[in-house]
Amino acid sequence: MVRLGDLAHARSGDKGNSANIGVVANDDVSFQWLRSHLTEAAVAAYLDPLEIGRVRRYELPHLRAFNFVIEKALAGGASRSLRLDTQGKSLGMALLELRLPALESLASSNTAETTR
């Protein structure tokens, strides 16, 4: 298995009661891999303990990036939620701990930071 944080970086925030997580792949190989493995269903299952609503994934191929919108992720949002992290700032860090199936060919490219 491979940790998402070894293939990509991320940041998250809020819009009302939805959160979004922007995920940017480190390189093209990782982006293609994530395209088929970092699915809406995989993210929804991982974040299931938060009792979330629908997860939508958007692709930005020029930037090797995805945007995940997670509905009802914030237990009421910045105003109503009683949680410490009412704005979902920590969701990006949490998502980077998601384990995905690893490709052998990825093992070598993971360590080298590449440029775009």
Binding site: H9, A10, R11, G13, D14, K15, S18, N20, G22, V23, V24, R56, Y58, L60, L63, R64, A65, N67, V69
Partner: peptide, 12 residues
């Protein structure tokens, strides 16, 4: 790139 995605919905 990371900041472009910050607190957005549909990027299109």
């Amino acid at each position: 790139a990371e900041q472009l995605l910050y607190e957005i919905d549909d990027p299109a």
